[in-house]
Design a protein around this nucleic acid. Sequence first.
DNA 1: CTCCAAACATGACCGCCGTCATGTTTCATT
DNA 2: AATGAAACATGACGGCGGTCATGTTTGGAG
Lengths: 233, 233
Amino acid sequence: MSSPPKTPLCEPQRPSCENCGSKAQNIICASNPNIPLSLEKAKIPCHFKRDQIIFYAENEPLGLFFVQSGLVKLEKVSEDGSAHTLRIMGPGGILGYRSLFANEPYHATALAVDDVELCFVPKAEILSVFKDHPEVALRLLNHVAKDLRQAEERWVGQMDKGASERIAEALIFLQEHFHSQSWTRREIAEWAGTTPETVMRTLAQFEKESLIGQSGRHINILNKTLLKERTCF
Amino acid sequence: MSSPPKTPLCEPQRPSCENCGSKAQNIICASNPNIPLSLEKAKIPCHFKRDQIIFYAENEPLGLFFVQSGLVKLEKVSEDGSAHTLRIMGPGGILGYRSLFANEPYHATALAVDDVELCFVPKAEILSVFKDHPEVALRLLNHVAKDLRQAEERWVGQMDKGASERIAEALIFLQEHFHSQSWTRREIAEWAGTTPETVMRTLAQFEKESLIGQSGRHINILNKTLLKERTCF
DNA sequence: CTCCAAACATGACCGCCGTCATGTTTCATT
DNA sequence: AATGAAACATGACGGCGGTCATGTTTGGAG
């Protein structure tokens, strides 16, 4: 029973993404060269700064977001207030598809990790793409099926592994996939399913073992192989 | 690095499911009345007894299973040996779709909860259905997107809630959805993400509070409302 | 009915890690 | 450079629940 949130609408900017397919090809546009053309006129560019909300959990999806630049994370806060990062999308990624295709309200909140440029495409346009290009549905089915595996694997991983192992995996994952971003202790904790305090203690331990180096707030992975093999104590 | 498992093949029985669509309509056959006819000749009926393996994690999917009767569960055992029940399918459900559509090996093991009748349809037949009936892909996309929400919700639920709350939810879920089955303490634990011992202690506590009744091995929910509101201590 | 393995049940122990409290460092802003 | 808030860091404490050990009950097979 949370208070009804207000959807922050994309304020339309100058339509500056006429050739957006060229910078970061997303899964839908990549399916058929005609699709980018048909979506072109329907696209609404919008951008968000760090920590701004793109959509709130519980609201109805009105369309699909295409990530042009920056990082977006989907997070779910449980009843006791702790936040969990479910997925992170970068350039070329899409956002809001699960709810749209399940025909359900959003079940998580999307927010900008850093400065983000998106393009919003209304639901009706997406559905017309399905009509004209049936193969798109199969590509998306493939994509969501992979999401489901990742979710189930992280789920059982977080249930059984110790905190230090989860943190080691988080460090490696975030560095390999989203290297550009500098992550806070809290963000690492929300990805690894633990608390900032435990992250810090574990980082100190990893540094003592020369697995990582910490210079100020920056974390440097020194021995990825050993870090990967690190099992929980 | 587990030893390479051997796929138990469906031993073909007499083809006794000519009108299987009538008993439990699955999501694919329900999409279009012509589909059951086209799948009819490709179907291979097979059945399994309690605890028999339908497929093993790591193996490649060769097609899709349609559940005719009985219950099937998907379980994933983590490195430390503990098992987690990811999903349960009953009559009308389908099995093996995530891996097939993601084009990945199975990441979990499927086994019969009780005696189960299935129909196996080879991958090629399924793909030809997609060609003839593009709307099927959208239905499946909808289905997998809902699976993804359920996985992510159980995931964060199991991370943050106390054991007793998770067990209360497990009791309600298993009773509401799969009422016929009598679940063991271990099965409840594997659904709730805990151990049989904790399940038993918690059940004893619930009984003391008159939320449930235990007669022998059978569990009777006496006050579902109170049980649902039960939060972790 | 007899038997036996599996499931059920309960108690003791204890370690991981979440919580709280307190202090320090970093860094953006002016 | 001064300032203040947010992030970083560290210690103490304690409880939830996992693990192990031991004993009891159940229910199916012969």
